[in-house]
């Protein structure tokens, strides 16, 4: 079956505007993050060690996870009692939906380019674009691979990183 219809193909190139993360980068959030990755680098918590960076910073790829549910956003656990609910959102950064009838969503990988750390207290912006949407027919069945390019910067316009994330629907 071909899932890449003309309507799906037409989504390639669709992009969002610059979107602000709801919260600025918080020291507590950075602490829980580097605790969970077991990365005690002082640049994440010690101002003296982070002098080159203008103060404590978040780990390089932290901005990818900085766009959290808004206080009045829909509850991702609202449908968790549905036996098929996987707990994931299909709202790809506010881009138009990719409506293919494949139920499982997997993280396929990342391609990063880093320019600067996000400092504690800074607010991050993101701009997203569908870079590619394609189908692969594996032994286990068809898969649709969605490449989304995200660019992150500070609200002052300083580039932080660019990343292409591959999401797999199967």
């Amino acid at each position: 079956m071909n899932y890449i219809t003309d309507e799906i193909r037409a989504l390639i190139g669709a992009e969002t505007g610059w979107v602000d993360a709801f919260d600025a980068v918080e020291a507590s959030e950075v602490r829980r993050f580097h605790h969970a990755t077991m990365d005690p680098a002082p640049r994440y918590w010690d101002a003296a060690a982070a002098g080159r960076h203008g103060g404590p910073v978040a780990p390089p790829a932290f901005p990818v996870h900085a766009f959290r549910r808004a206080p009045d956003g829909p509850d991702p656990l609202a449908s968790i009692h549905d036996p098929d609910a996987d707990g994931l959102s299909r709202a790809f950064r506010g881009l138009p939906p990719v409506e293919v009838p494949l139920p499982r969503l997997l993280n396929g990988g990342y391609r990063y380019e880093f320019f600067r750390y996000a400092r504690t207290g800074e607010r991050i912006q993101r701009k997203s674009r569908y870079l590619d949407i394609r189908q692969k027919d594996a032994r286990s069945g068809p898969m649709v691979l969605i490449d989304i390019e995200d660019r992150f910067r500070t609200v002052a316009g300083e580039p932080l990183l660019n990343v292409v994330t591959t999401t797999i629907l199967r």
Partner: peptide, 25 residues
């Protein structure tokens, strides 16, 4: 992914820079 980034960032040190990395799961 962050474990890989940590490996490379630690190695580069504050005088170097991890410019690019990519990986597949």
């Amino acid at each position: 992914q962050h474990v890989l980034v940590q490996l490379l960032t630690d190695w580069a040190g504050d005088g170097g820079w991890l410019w690019k990395c990519s990986f597949q799961f």
